[in-house]
Design a protein around this nucleic acid. Structure first.
Lengths: 210, 210
DNA sequence: TCATATTCCTTGTGATCACTAGGTTTTTGA
DNA sequence: TCAAAAACCTAGTGATCACAAGGAATATGA
C-alpha cells in the first residue's frame, strides 16, 4: 500500500521512460515476492501478482516472459540479498563466527518477507527436479560448509574442544535455524527466532568449550 | 504397481461388495498420500490421484465428496498413525522420554512417505487460515508441551540441572527435528535424521546433566 | 425373481490458468 | 517532425481444474 520508490541502483534520471520501466519491474518483483511468500508459487496467479503491482497480467508478461522467469528473478533477488548478509557474517572466522550466529535469528526476523519466501519456496520445491530445487540444495550446502569450517577452525585453534564433530554441529545448527523459521511462521511470530537462536548457540558453546 | 491388499481392519468377508469398496477407498487414500507428499495439495490433481488408484476422478469423488474432504481424510489418517507412535514414546517420562527422543529421527526415516507428507502439507498451509493449518498448529503445540513437561520433570527430579529452561529446550528440540526433516528431504536422504538426532539429544543431555 | 443400493463411468460445465496476438499510447532520438 | 521503440492494454486461446448429472453394471436382500 506504500513504498513505491524501491528502485534498484538506477543511473537514469527520474520521470524518464527507462526509470518508469525499471520501477514497474521492481514493483512486479516486490508483489511476486509477497504473494509467493504467502501462497507459494502454484498458489499465486499471475493475475493476482499483476493486480498487486497495478497492471494486467499481459502487462506483467512484458517484463517477465513467463511465470517461471518471474520465479527465478524473485529467487535470484533473494539470493543476492542473503549473500550480502552472509558475507558480513563471514568476516568472522572460527568461534567468533559461531558466536555471531546467535544473532542470526534476529537477522531473519528483520526481514520477515524474505524469510517466509525462503521457507515457502524451498518446501514447495523440496522433491522436484527443477532449477529452484538445485538453487536451494546449493544454498544449504554453502551454509552448512561455512558452519562446518567454522567449527573445524574453532576446534583446531583450541577455542572449542578438539574432539567435536564439525559436520554434525553444522547440520544441527542449520536444522535449528530451519525449524525455528517454521515454528515462527506457524505460530504467527509468537515464537521468537531471535531468542531461541541465542539460547541454542549459547548451549552449543557451553557444551563444546575447551 | 503392487500391494493391493492394504485393507483397514475390515470385518466383512473378502470378495464382497463392501470389502471391495473399502479396499478402493484405502487405495485412493494411499495414492493421495503419495501424491500430496510429493507434489503438495495444489500440485496433485484429482485426476492424477484417481489414475494412481486406478479409477476416474468422478469415481474418486464417490468416495470423497471433494478434494478438500480427501485432504482432511489423508491428514486425519496420518494423525492417527503419529498419535500411536507418540503414545508409545509417552510411556516414558522426564529424562527417559528425552533419551527416547534420540531414536525419533530413526522413527521418521522408517516411514518416509508420512514424513514427507507432513513436511509438504505443513509448509503449504503455514500461513493460511484453514482446518489443515489449525491441525498442524495444534500438533506442534502438543509436541512442544510434551517435551516441555519432560524437561520440567527431569529438572524437578534432579536428573537434569534444576535451572534449565524447559520451554526453550522444547522449542529447540522441536526445531531440530523439523530442520532435519527438511535437510533429509532436500538432500534426498543422504543426510541422516537418525544419526543427527542421536547426536543432538546426546549433546543436550551432556550439557544439562545435573 | 426383482426392487434396491452400491460402485463407478461417461460426459459436460464453468472457472481459472498461463500465455499469445495484435493494437494503442507515450516517449525518445534523430 | 516523425519513425521507431518502450510500455502497456484488450481480447482472446487452449489446457486444466474441481466437480455435477445422470446412466450403466453389479451385487444384495427380500
Amino acid at each position: 500500500m506504500s513504498e513505491k520508490q524501491s528502485k534498484t541502483a538506477s543511473s537514469a534520471p527520474p520521470g524518464t521512460r527507462q526509470s518508469r520501466g525499471r520501477a514497474r519491474r521492481a514493483a512486479v518483483l516486490a508483489a511476486a515476492r509477497r504473494l509467493f511468500a504467502q501462497q507459494g508459487f502454484k498458489g499465486a496467479s499471475l493475475a493476482a501478482i499483476a493486480q498487486e503491482a497495478e497492471l494486467t497480467d499481459a502487462g506483467l508478461l512484458y517484463h517477465f516472459p513467463s511465470k517461471n522467469h518471474l520465479l527465478l528473478a524473485v529467487v535470484a533477488e533473494g539470493d543476492r540479498e542473503q549473500d550480502e548478509a552472509l558475507e558480513k557474517v563471514q568476516t568472522a572466522k572460527g568461534l567468533p563466527l559461531i558466536e555471531r550466529m546467535a544473532e542470526f535469528g534476529a537477522d531473519l526476523e528483520a526481514d520477515p518477507l524474505l524469510t517466509a519466501l525462503d521457507v515457502t519456496l524451498s518446501a514447495e520445491h523440496l522433491q522436484e527436479d527443477s532449477e529452484v530445487n538445485r538453487y536451494f540444495v546449493a544454498r544449504y550446502e554453502r551454509f552448512r560448509s561455512m558452519l562446518e569450517t567454522a567449527f573445524a577452525d574453532a576446534a583446531r585453534t583450541g577455542d572449542l574442544r578438539a574432539d567435536l564433530d564439525p559436520a554434525a554441529e553444522a547440520v544441527n545448527m542449520t536444522a535449528v535455524i530451519d525449524g525455528l523459521r517454521l515454528q515462527w511462521l506457524l505460530s504467527g511470530g509468537s515464537i521468537s527466532m531471535a531468542q531461541n537462536m541465542r539460547d541454542y548457540v549459547r548451549g552449543v558453546i557451553a557444551r563444546l568449550r575447551a
